[in-house]
Design a protein around this nucleic acid. Structure first.
Lengths: 298, 298
DNA sequence: TGTCTCGATAGGTTATGACTATGGCCGATT
DNA sequence: AATCGGCCATAGTCATAACCTATCGAGACA
């Protein structure tokens, strides 16, 4: 059985005339005639009675007609649903950020995203790098924003922006008075870090790998905000990504944020998605918005 | 779009594996692959994401899937409905009788009809010959049982049985004492007849056409039962078809029913249906039952 | 009786869906 | 690192389903 056959049948039921029904279906009368006969043959029942000058539905035909109509209507629903979804820049798009990026990047990009991609409903998630990649591969999310590099098997990667690190020290700290901080200046300091799983932890350790710092093993922060408060409380110093020091997140409350002297250590923030993703257009558009946002704000 | 494509899509959504889905649809993998792609192309949206080792539905695919399932289910409904209707001796069959046949024939045939055609639901109607033929041609009924002959344009006709006429006279009437009545005996009598539209009226006039009878113009009965009572009341005599004199409808209550001497005048009762009718098998079966009933009872 | 309407039939062409064989990608194994 | 195997896509070919035009035949109508 075929949707086309049902269409022919319904047209015939409406017009009760083979010629007119054929016209309505944009086929010749013999074609429709043959297809109807084939349908009847397939179903094993006569659907219509061909009286001279008059076509009528049999009992069975009358029973089948509403079913056929509903099927056609639902098939049209599929088509129109697909047409609505046709716009690649519409629909839901699930994006995950790592925790040291999301809360600081989103306020900057949100307005522009909403303005430039108004039909895109962004579903926002926050995961650490590893769970994020897993959920990405599992298809639970479509796009991840995190610090590069990441293993790229099956994934597409695009760099979004370069994010400098800064040093956060207590107000009273000697470094608070210097205009710029060199990495070597951190030698001998106590470093406060995020708990395991945060990539920022590894990045900070990496920056300090050549100098002599000791991690405060008693405390591991669960978020940058906790970390910030721990520094203000004088428990040590830490590295903060630059976006986490802008606007309401800057110096104050017993905390001084210092920028590094050149060469400024930094991390690369990038977007990752499945190579096979069906949303590459929307993804690309989102990346563009983030990139331009960051290049304007820097 | 095609039901087959939807079948492929649903199979793929179920198995999430092109090869297995193809197997389930009894086609080769490339075939299913190509059809799915064609479907996606037609809809203008990607329905699935081909990850290595893993096939997943896109957002759109997930929306379309339940629609596709429902369509397939309903198309199966059509097929199974048709299969149920497949038995030509089942379903509704609308039969109309003329008033001078229906009430007398049905009690005789009903039991055998129900026994031999148990799945056939007979819808019974009663119309005079002309309206009956109109409704038959209009497709409102499938089968008519009436007195022949009738105009046969577009209609199929089959004789069912021959029905003798009898004479009904008041108990006190001279003819009530004779064993048999000749047509000539009716000469000079006052004839009571049914109102216009009843074919029996014309048949009675026809039987009496060669002799001298006068119709009682003051009364025209609307049914055989009224006619019978009018005869019993002494208003005249009348002709009754034989079936209307059997069982509870016989002599008594001031009425005597006499049979004719040979040659016995009679009418031919027959079945008519549209040549193009889709129910010819059921019709034929019903005719058979009536014929054998009548040949057994006579 | 001729004419018209309308569905069915005949014959030929195109388009579609199916197949097999094969390629390319990726993950897993040795 | 090289090989193997699973899996989907591509290429090329073929059968048939669907379509067309032309025509027939039955029945309605003037």
């Amino acid at each position: 059985m075929n949707l086309r056959d049902l269409r022919y049948f319904v047209a015939l039921a409406d017009t009760r005339h083979f010629g007119k029904a054929a016209e309505r279906c944009f086929v010749s009368q013999p074609t429709l005639s043959a297809q109807i006969k084939k349908l009847e043959n397939y179903l094993g029942v006569q659907l219509l009675e061909r009286q001279p000058r008059k076509v009528t539905l049999t009992e069975t035909g009358q029973k089948i007609l509403p079913l056929a109509r509903r099927i056609l209507q639902e098939s049209d629903e599929i088509v129109s649903l697909a047409r609505n979804e046709h716009d690649p820049l519409s629909g839901k798009l699930k994006i995950a950020f790592i925790p040291t990026i999301g809360p600081y990047l989103l306020p900057l990009a949100a307005r522009k995203l909403r303005k430039q991609l108004p039909r895109l409903k962004l579903m926002l998630y926050e995961y650490q790098t590893q769970p994020l990649l897993e959920k990405l591969r599992a298809g639970e999310i479509e796009l991840g924003v995190l610090a590069l590099p990441v293993p790229t098997d099956g994934l597409e990667v695009r760099e979004l922006y370069e994010e400098s690190f800064t040093v956060a020290v207590p107000n009273q700290h000697a470094l608070a008075k210097k205009p710029h901080v060199k990495i070597d200046d951190l030698s001998g300091e106590t470093l406060l870090l995020l708990e395991d799983g945060h990539c920022l932890r590894d990045q900070a350790l990496d920056v300090c790998s050549l100098i002599d710092v000791k991690e405060n093993e008693d405390y591991r922060a669960t978020s940058l905000e906790t970390l910030r408060q721990m520094v203000a409380a004088g428990l040590g110093i830490t590295l903060l990504p630059q976006l986490a020091t802008r606007g309401p997140f800057g110096s104050g409350h017993g905390l001084a944020v210092k920028s590094f002297a050149k060469p400024i250590p930094s991390r690369t923030v990038g977007a990752v998605w499945r190579k096979s993703s069906a949303r590459s257009e929307a993804i690309s558009a989102v990346c563009d918005v983030i990139r331009t946002t960051m290049s304007e704000k820097s």
